[in-house]
Write a protein that binds this DNA or RNA. Structure first.
Lengths: 202, 202, 202, 202
DNA sequence: ACGCTCGGGACAACCCGTTCGT
DNA sequence: ACGAACGGGTTGTCCCGAGCGT
């Protein structure tokens, strides 16, 4: 609750912080408790005191990784006042640092990884996507409301395309081991955003 | 299919066909030989006669899944003559059947799954992406050459964005368990393609 | 034995004690972890907690078996004061109980068994042989120094022959399932030792 | 039966020749059919046509290796006329080439290797030892009969010691990876043989 | 309360010796 | 003589809980 909680709480958080990159890189079934032991410096018993199961830890690790993503990206947005600028900011922030945690975007990774079983993890990934889409949609609506963005667009559709393009690009960039795809996406989306903005009459 | 192949070859192909969906759904480390035994109806020894390792089988399964994807999508394209129509056809074919193999797009899944180790698998995924991008780029260039598409666009950039948007959308659609994201992507990309086409003078 | 050792240490030692005869009887590749599980009463997880691999356990088991051999034989020697008597004692002790561990002499067995690969195990067997030869050689030199043994012999040569005769005999006795070869060796070596001793003048 | 038997017989012999060194080096349970396939160039089915089981092949391989040993050593003896010279010849031949098959003396290896189960193999090893001892004993008796060797020795005892010393030495030489032990044994046994020979009166 | 030591047992991938149809 | 399949074996790792010491 408060920041200076007991030792247990600190250990728990430490485990999560150390575990998050591992899960993000190797996936749920690709990560073993032995890996986690090595990273955390704890023994299995020490880990299991704080989490009832590997899955519970994986969920906590995803939540942590995602909250870090949000924190970093929202920070980058705080300096912008107008909705349109915020949208450009989102695109640029993502293209600049697509992976806030080693291993790429936690949302993409977890979504793909939990596609089979693991509904718990999947639910959290779904919530994360929902959050992100909501943020974009709301910003679009704000832009429409303040006259920056044309009324004719559908916020859910635009938000969906924007997120999809970014996520698809991060996959491609990682696979090709270059940044091209992300740069192409950045340019395309920025141009697209200008296309849906209301131009001042002359 | 292959007419004069021996029994072994047929069994090998059968194993691959049965294994491909499993790997595509559960990932490399999420798929056990026991799962594969159940699906193929073979014992372990029977499987290991045809593949030296799980990894070799996984690679073969990916190659098969990807070749199926290509076959199905290229079939859909054969009826179109003009490059622009082909591009629309690609988008529509993908949006209509994003997963030619149970579990979603093999490229996306394998790219994310093999992000950690498994460089062999990764190399094949990379080659698949390269193929796809090449196909789109070439079609774009054909379109430019025959005057259907404006010269100002950059084929690599457009191809990258197109693929990224589709791949990102399939991830989102699967995660949300609806088809919205794919439909939004289809509409967006079709509109975008029209935007880069040369309009006949009136 | 060790008074203030933890439970783990006791378990580890117990595994070694149980494993030593099995390895000695069936050899390295002839011994399976399943055999060891049966003998120790532990599950695989319990065994692998204390040893990183089968090989590490095999090495520990050999060391234990050899140290037992030394202990038993050196005990038998403690009552003798003169070097010559010690040498007779060694021969007799070996002929009386050639196998301190079920399965025959660990040195012979391990030397033959590790002849192919398994350099780790081989190194330990080599060290054991070295130890034994050193002991005999030193005793011979002591005998020469105190005038019990003629100066003309070569301690390394005599030690080598003595050990070889005993080891060869234990192989033969086991193969023939009788004690003849050992008795012949005992008699031969005792006579030989008398032959190299300095007789008191009359 | 006759020398120019059919193809099957030749293949069978070829398998044995290729298998013998492998079994001799790695032992019965250390040798897999896969190893044998590699060495013989045959498939499993091809091997199993000629032998009902791995054990049957191992037995045949041992018999072959042993018969080769005998052939080579008896060849070396043919030039000597007197029993005493024959005995010296045996010692020297063994010391010169202790391993007629890669991996060391088949008798020693098989005796140690088959100490556990594998009574079939053990029986053949036992017979081989018996043969060798018989040969030495008979030569000793011949020496006594023709007056070359003193009557007071016991042929079985001397034969046993002679064989034991050689076998023990080959183990030691292989373990130490030098030839010392064999040379010490050669010298010791030759001296010993001189010691039991009847000296001409002066 | 916390963390570690110890052990369990199921399961991992992979290889074994063997049989049989062709 | 091969090639296919089998089924149980191999070593080793998995995730997890019980219990001890701090």
């Amino acid at each position: 609750v408060n920041s200076s909680t007991g030792k247990g709480e600190r250990t728990r958080l430490n485990i999560i912080k150390k575990a998050a990159p591992v899960f993000n890189q190797f996936g749920y079934s690709g990560t073993s408790l032995t890996d986690l032991m090595a990273k955390t410096g704890l023994e299995k018993g020490g880990i299991y005191r704080h989490f009832q199961s590997k899955q519970e830890l994986a969920v906590a690790a995803f939540d942590y990784a995602w909250s870090e993503s949000k924190r970093i990206r929202l920070e980058a947005l705080s300096s912008f006042a107008s909705p349109l600028e915020k949208l450009h900011g989102m695109v640029n922030a993502f293209a600049d640092k697509p992976s806030t945690t080693p291993g790429g975007c936690p949302l993409l990774n977890t979504a793909v990884d939990s596609d089979d079983g693991n509904p718990e993890l999947r639910a959290h990934a779904r919530a994360a996507l929902r959050e992100w889409l909501d943020l974009v949609e709301q910003t679009l609506r704000d832009g429409i409301a303040c006259g920056e963005i044309v009324k004719s667009i559908s916020p859910p559709a635009v938000a969906s395309v924007l997120v999809a393009t970014l996520e698809g690009s991060v996959m491609m960039s990682r696979l090709k081991a270059d940044r091209c795809a992300l740069e192409f996406a950045r340019q395309h989306l920025n141009t697209f955003l200008i296309g849906i903005s209301r131009k001042p009459r002359r």
